[in-house]
Deep mutational scan, measured.
Amino acid sequence: EEWMVEKALMVRTGLGARQIESYRQGAWIEGVHFKRVSPSGESTLRGTTWYNYPEINKFIR
């Protein structure tokens, strides 16, 4: 699984929702560690946020 939603990321990493938000707003790079995608497939600020687990795992190492 490369891309996953927040709940799956929480299960895989043990991070809480606030921790994920903090990383997203600070250290993680949009387009690398996470992306927002609307149902139409376009990038957007209001779409579902998807997280790239392999890239996040590399960051944590």
Rank of each mutant, 00 (worst) to 15 (best):
E1N: 10
E1C: 11
E1S: 10
E1T: 09
E1A: 10
E2N: 07
E2I: 14
W3C: 02
W3K: 00
M4R: 01
M4S: 01
M4Y: 04
M4F: 05
V5H: 11
V5Y: 07
V5N: 15
V5S: 15
V5G: 14
E6Q: 08
E6A: 10
E6T: 05
K7A: 14
K7W: 11
K7M: 09
A8R: 07
A8E: 15
A8W: 09
A8G: 06
A8K: 07
A8S: 08
L9I: 08
L9Y: 02
L9F: 05
M10A: 06
M10F: 03
M10R: 07
M10T: 06
V11C: 14
V11F: 11
V11N: 10
V11S: 10
V11P: 03
R12A: 14
R12H: 10
T13I: 05
T13P: 01
G14C: 06
G14Q: 05
G14K: 05
G14Y: 03
G14V: 02
L15M: 07
L15H: 01
L15V: 03
L15Y: 03
L15A: 01
G16F: 07
G16K: 12
G16D: 15
A17W: 10
A17I: 11
A17F: 07
A17P: 12
R18Q: 14
R18F: 10
R18S: 13
R18P: 08
Q19Y: 04
Q19G: 03
Q19L: 07
Q19K: 05
I20L: 07
I20E: 01
E21W: 09
E21P: 01
E21C: 08
E21K: 10
S22W: 14
Y23W: 08
Y23F: 10
Y23R: 02
R24L: 14
Q25A: 11
Q25W: 06
Q25H: 10
G26W: 12
G26V: 08
G26P: 01
G26M: 10
G26Q: 10
G26D: 11
G26H: 14
G26F: 12
A27W: 09
A27P: 11
A27G: 09
W28G: 00
W28Y: 00
W28S: 00
W28V: 00
W28M: 02
W28Q: 00
I29C: 05
I29R: 06
E30V: 05
E30M: 04
E30C: 04
E30K: 04
E30R: 04
E30N: 05
G31C: 05
G31H: 04
G31A: 03
G31E: 05
G31S: 04
G31V: 03
V32G: 01
V32Q: 06
V32F: 07
H33V: 01
H33L: 02
H33S: 00
H33N: 00
F34P: 00
F34W: 14
F34M: 03
K35D: 04
K35Q: 07
K35P: 01
R36Y: 15
R36I: 15
R36G: 06
R36C: 15
R36T: 15
R36P: 06
V37C: 12
V37G: 09
S38L: 11
S38A: 13
S38K: 09
S38G: 13
P39G: 12
P39N: 13
P39Q: 12
P39V: 14
P39M: 12
S40L: 12
S40C: 11
S40E: 14
S40N: 13
S40F: 11
G41V: 08
G41M: 08
G41Q: 08
G41W: 06
E42G: 11
E42Y: 06
E42F: 06
E42C: 08
E42S: 10
S43F: 05
S43D: 13
S43G: 12
S43W: 03
T44R: 08
T44P: 12
L45I: 12
L45H: 12
L45Q: 12
L45D: 15
R46P: 15
R46Q: 15
R46Y: 13
R46T: 14
R46W: 12
R46F: 14
R46E: 15
G47H: 10
G47W: 13
G47D: 13
T48W: 06
T48N: 07
T48K: 07
T48I: 13
T48A: 09
T49F: 15
T49P: 04
T49D: 06
T49Q: 04
W50F: 12
W50I: 13
Y51L: 01
Y51N: 00
Y51V: 00
N52V: 02
N52L: 02
Y53L: 13
Y53T: 02
P54G: 08
P54L: 10
P54E: 12
E55I: 05
E55R: 04
E55A: 10
E55S: 05
E55Q: 07
I56C: 03
I56D: 01
N57L: 15
N57A: 15
N57S: 13
K58T: 06
K58E: 10
K58G: 05
K58Q: 08
F59T: 05
F59Y: 07
F59Q: 04
F59D: 03
I60E: 03
I60F: 11
I60V: 06
I60N: 03
I60Y: 04
I60H: 03
R61P: 04
R61E: 14
R61W: 10
R61L: 14
R61F: 10
R61C: 11
R61Y: 09
